[in-house]
Design a protein around this nucleic acid. Structure first.
Length: 639
RNA sequence: GCGCCGUUGGUCCAGUGGUAGGACAUUAGCUUCCCAAGCUAAUAGCCCGGGUUCAAUUCCCGGACGGCGCACCA
């Protein structure tokens, strides 16, 4: 059962992709390199169109803004984001069977330790030895085996020498998050606002697999929506409420025969299945978008992450998944996108690690007047008393005042009373004789309350600083492209001949229209070249082809998914032959357009890819007709 | 990283211890008035390194790459 388990479709698709220039492995001349692909002419164009379609839907239509950040970022960015910690896998190899296992997982599964990844490789090695843990595959002891770090981050040096480490970004998102302080200015400090980015990301995968589906360099399209968790405008949920999709929630996944629920986005939200309205909104928008680029919605679903598989930052997460298996076999669901509620994880981290402010100021409806406890320590007393620690003591006092103003009040009343009856001081922060006690670096300091300058001031606050929460639809362009090709791959029969074609939506097809002279003679080519030039002037993507028989040219365009072909014939140049002569043969006449009427001068045939049907169109109407067909403003069947 | 299998024109395959053949595709010519037609010709290939051998595309070892399984996949 080892060889060629690859399904027919996937093998045919890979072959077509290579032969027709969608994608091929990179650097084949040097033996190839695993996990890197080059998009050929058709693939680059298809990818471009998919990206532009996404940009139109998620940047322009949503009124969001797009940025373009570097692929290399300095080390501290990824220290803050958690990627440097989270991205090292600890591997231990079995001396007997050679299997590599996650060392931290072995420890977590067999001991009471949790979060073993945080313990570090040395400690994990010790634990394996202490507990005499064994290989999960063959049972051989793993004590004393080296714990190897495998980082999935591509490292590089910035500038000469090795003093400044950088990493290729493992996701485009951090490029947005780190620039948040500027971005919020561009958004005029108003939530919610969204920032998008389309770009490459890099992960040094252990084992790239499945053609375009698991690679080391890939393109992400990400939207980071910054929201006020308690306030602010919600999404226009009504606009996508009627979108139906399969929702495969945690409950359905854990049930014995759980099946995805085929319900509307509106219902999924009302039921609480998709709790966050923004996530629900983007699931609806996402489903519509995937449909628009050619994903088969019968092989598509939304799946909620189980608690164990959620990323370090995600509070709730839904994946968009597509089945790319061949017909008649077990579905092979691949992840197309993640819709994550990242809460304030990323911005808080960058706020903490960097010198910038990652908050926005939220104005109250009405300014509120509050009592705020403050301190104004008498440094001329604290200094001599505590020496170098005095500054820290003052800071600790300010903190204590904010957290526990009672301590000061107690101390003050104790101080008042102490002149009288020397009552016992209460437990806590109130020291003897009307002092407050603070801890600094493990040392206790007792400060007479009179020296703290404690006071309660009335201040008027017009708002507060909050760290926005983040809703993130993040999707892989390459996987979308692969899925579209897989789902649009068709084989049928035309006039007894087998045909392969890609039923790509006109909007994303690499070429929109093929232009052919029926024959390469009698001036037909020249006229066809003019037609092609006119169409190109309208911004249409045109392929001109005068090589070989007309049928061959149609098939060539079918294979790369060109939705329409225009043929210049003798009618176009006003030299249609008599009915008696040169009538197409029987097989041909079946597909000859306008069979009842005489073709008019100055018209061309337009042939539709999916049905191979043809219609006659006046040359002068051709550009606008094809533009309308491409943009979905007209239907071929109604022309 | 581990295991099994594989790698021959652009693509898909056949084959051999004495450096290879087909199909499709491509190009040119003829033919052809709408769906991969026909005829003629041309272009183009044994994954890389080492070993055995007089001689290796073929046998052996190693590597790269691919498919599948295991592991991994924030």
């Amino acid at each position: 059962m080892s060889e060629d388990n690859e399904t027919g479709t996937s093998a045919d698709l890979t072959e077509l992709a290579k032969r027709r220039g969608f994608f091929t492995q990179s650097a084949g001349a040097y033996g190839g390199v695993s996990g890197f692909y080059t998009f050929g002419p058709q693939g680059a164009s298809l990818k471009d169109n998919i990206e532009n379609s996404w940009r139109d839907r998620f940047t322009l239509q949503e009124g969001n803004m797009e940025i373009d950040a570097p692929t290399v970022m300095p080390e501290p960015v990824f220290e803050a984001s958690g990627h440097l910690d989270g991205f090292d896998d600890m591997l231990v190899e079995c001396p007997s069977c050679g299997e590599s296992h996650r060392a931290d997982h072995i420890v977590e599964d067999n001991t009471e330790y949790e979060e073993a990844e945080g313990l570090g490789p040395d400690r994990v090695g010790q634990i394996i030895e202490e507990y005499e843990l064994v290989c999960p595959t063959c049972g051989t002891g793993l004590g004393g085996r080296a714990i190897e770090d495998f980082s999935l981050m591509f490292e590089t040096n910035i500038g000469p020498g090795s003093s400044s480490s950088g990493y290729l970004r493992p996701e485009t998102a951090q490029g947005i998050f780190v620039e948040f302080p500027q971005l919020k200015e561009y958004a005029r400090n108003r939530l919610p606002f969204g920032v998008t980015q389309i770009g490459r990301a890099y992960r040094n995968e252990i084992s790239p697999r499945k053609s375009l589906l698991r690679v080391r360099e890939f393109t992400q399209a990400e939207l980071e929506l910054f929201v006020d968790p308690e306030d602010g405008d919600g999404p226009d949920l009504d606009s996508v409420a009627d979108v139906v999709a399969p929702f495969y929630g945690v409950e359905q996944q854990e049930a014995e025969d759980g099946e995805p629920l085929e319900i509307t986005v509106g219902e999924a939200h009302e039921r609480g299945l998709v709790a966050d309205p923004w996530i629900a909104y983007y699931l609806g928008a996402g489903a519509e978008w995937y449909r628009s680029i050619g994903v088969d919605m019968d092989r598509f679903r939304f799946r909620q992450h189980l608690s164990g598989e959620r990323a370090h930052y995600a509070a709730d997460c839904w994946d968009a998944e597509a089945d790319v298996s061949g017909p008649g076999v077990e579905p092979d669901w691949i992840e197309l996108a993640g819709f994550a509620y990242r809460s304030d994880y990323d911005l808080s981290k960058h706020d903490e690690y960097s010198d910038e402010d990652y908050t926005v100021f939220r104005q109250y409806d009405e300014p509120v007047t509050v009592e705020r406890p403050t301190v104004d320590p008498d440094m001329s007393a604290l200094g001599p008393a505590f020496g170098g620690a005095a500054g820290d003591v003052a800071d600790a006092l300010a903190e204590l005042a904010a957290e526990d103003p009672e301590a000061f009040r107690e101390a003050r009343s104790a101080s008042d009373r102490s002149s009288g009856d020397g009552e016992k001081p209460r437990d806590g922060d109130a020291g003897e004789d009307g002092s407050v006690v603070v801890d600094v670096d493990g040392e206790s300091y007792e400060v007479p309350v009179e020296q703290t300058g404690f006071a309660v001031e009335e201040v008027t606050e017009s708002g507060e600083h909050i760290v926005p929460h983040v809703v993130e639809p993040s999707l892989g362009i390459d996987r979308a492209l692969y899925t579209v090709l897989d789902h649009c791959y068709r084989e049928d029969e035309v006039d007894g001949e087998e045909r392969t074609f890609l039923e790509l939506p006109a909007e994303v097809a690499p070429t929109t229209v093929g232009v052919f002279p029926l024959m390469d003679r009698d001036g037909l080519s020249e006229r066809a070249q003019e037609v092609a030039a006119d169409l190109r002037e309208q911004g249409l993507s045109v392929a001109y082809d005068d090589s070989g028989a007309i049928g061959r040219r149609y098939r060539r365009q079918d294979e790369v998914g060109t939705p329409f072909c225009v043929t210049v014939d003798y009618a176009t140049i006003g030299e249609a032959e008599d009915d008696s002569e040169g009538e197409p043969s029987e097989a041909q006449s079946a597909s000859e357009p306008s069979s009842g009427e005489q073709p008019r001068e100055g018209t061309v045939t337009v042939r539709e890819r999916d049905t191979t049907a043809q219609k006659r169109i006046a040359t002068e109407d051709l550009p606008e007709t094809l533009v309308a067909l491409r943009d979905g403003d007209a239907a071929f069947s109604e022309m």
